[in-house]
Computed example of a mutant assay.
Amino acid sequence: MPFANFKVPERALSAGQKEDLIHKTTALFVEMFGGGVRPYTMVLIEEVVDGGYGRADEVFTIPGDLPAAS
């Protein structure tokens, strides 16, 4: 079963953007492995609470002046 797990900042993607990401990821797996994988493809989008992730010892937060996805 092909499986993709995306971790994104909380409220960074709208419902439509999540749906698009799921469709495009599924299409990528079908392109790579053939149509037989479509029914078994799993795409999980996890929203990480603001400040709950970082890189190189730097904690990331979404700037307050950026609008949240709707």
Results as ranks from 00 to 15, higher is better:
40 Y>F: 14
40 Y>A: 14
9 P>V: 15
13 L>T: 02
9 P>G: 15
21 L>W: 02
18 K>M: 12
63 P>T: 00
42 M>P: 00
14 S>L: 03
52 G>D: 05
26 T>M: 06
27 A>T: 09
23 H>D: 12
24 K>I: 07
11 R>H: 13
42 M>A: 14
19 E>M: 06
15 A>N: 11
31 E>I: 01
49 V>Q: 05
45 I>W: 05
21 L>C: 11
55 R>P: 00
28 L>F: 14
39 P>W: 14
26 T>Q: 05
66 L>F: 13
66 L>C: 05
14 S>F: 06
16 G>R: 08
60 F>V: 02
64 G>T: 09
37 V>D: 04
43 V>L: 03
53 Y>D: 03
49 V>A: 13
9 P>C: 13
42 M>N: 11
29 F>H: 08
18 K>S: 04
53 Y>V: 01
35 G>W: 01
45 I>G: 02
32 M>I: 15
29 F>G: 01
11 R>I: 04
55 R>G: 00
38 R>C: 08
15 A>W: 01
51 G>K: 02
50 D>Q: 08
43 V>I: 14
37 V>R: 02
54 G>I: 00
65 D>R: 14
41 T>A: 10
58 E>M: 12
49 V>L: 10
50 D>A: 05
46 E>V: 09
11 R>V: 09
57 D>P: 00
26 T>F: 04
19 E>S: 13
50 D>K: 10
32 M>G: 00
34 G>I: 07
11 R>L: 04
54 G>Q: 06
24 K>M: 09
43 V>Y: 08
58 E>W: 11
11 R>M: 08
32 M>T: 15
37 V>H: 06
47 E>L: 04
64 G>S: 13
58 E>S: 09
51 G>C: 08
49 V>E: 11
30 V>H: 03
56 A>S: 12
20 D>E: 14
43 V>D: 03
38 R>F: 07
64 G>W: 09
62 I>F: 05
46 E>C: 07
16 G>P: 08
48 V>Y: 05
24 K>H: 11
46 E>L: 06
13 L>F: 13
46 E>I: 04
49 V>Y: 00
18 K>I: 12
37 V>G: 07
26 T>S: 12
57 D>E: 10
26 T>E: 05
9 P>R: 15
11 R>D: 12
45 I>K: 03
64 G>N: 09
32 M>L: 14
60 F>E: 10
19 E>N: 07
14 S>H: 03
38 R>S: 13
51 G>M: 05
51 G>S: 04
13 L>R: 11
22 I>H: 06
15 A>E: 14
25 T>H: 02
29 F>K: 03
38 R>T: 12
18 K>V: 11
63 P>C: 00
32 M>V: 15
37 V>Y: 05
26 T>G: 05
54 G>Y: 03
16 G>A: 12
40 Y>M: 09
58 E>K: 13
33 F>Y: 14
33 F>S: 01
34 G>P: 01
39 P>I: 08
65 D>L: 09
14 S>V: 08
36 G>I: 09
46 E>D: 12
23 H>A: 14
31 E>C: 02
59 V>D: 01
52 G>F: 07
